[in-house]
């Protein structure tokens, strides 16, 4: 008891602004193996949804796992999920803990 169980949270970000506005660090083959949110830009869709937080680690985007994806690939997947016209939102599976679930 008392040990915090690493939990994953599904966060829906509505595309309420022309930009997503997050900065991420890390990716496969770095000491931060899954991309972590390091900055959220004021006025972007991520900021507007007010559920994404700096420090959260992104496990999946729209069901696509970022496990094993290098930094540029992970950033590209996130950017394309925001740009696609098919959906008016994006789903992030995030965790507060620096573990891969």
């Amino acid at each position: 008891p008392g040990l915090l169980e690493p939990t994953a949270t599904l966060i829906r970000v509505m595309k309420t602004a022309p930009t997503l506005g997050i900065a991420i660090e890390g990716g496969a083959k770095t000491r931060q193996p899954l991309p972590r949110i390091v900055t959220i830009q004021r006025g972007g869709s991520a900021h507007n949804c007010s559920k994404l937080k700096v420090g959260q680690v992104i496990l999946e985007v729209n069901g696509i796992s970022l496990q094993g994806k290098e930094h540029r690939e992970a950033a590209r997947i996130i950017a394309e999920a925001f740009k696609t016209k098919e959906k008016d939102h994006m789903d992030f599976l995030v965790t507060e803990f620096n573990v891969s679930l």
């Binding site: 997050i22 900065a23 660090e25 930094h71 950017a79």
Partner: peptide, 14 residues
């Protein structure tokens, strides 16, 4: 000790 690059890449996603 696995040599992981200390420098971690950062990118903006707009």
């Amino acid at each position: 000790l696995r040599l992981e690059p200390q420098w971690v890449p950062i990118s903006w996603v707009y």
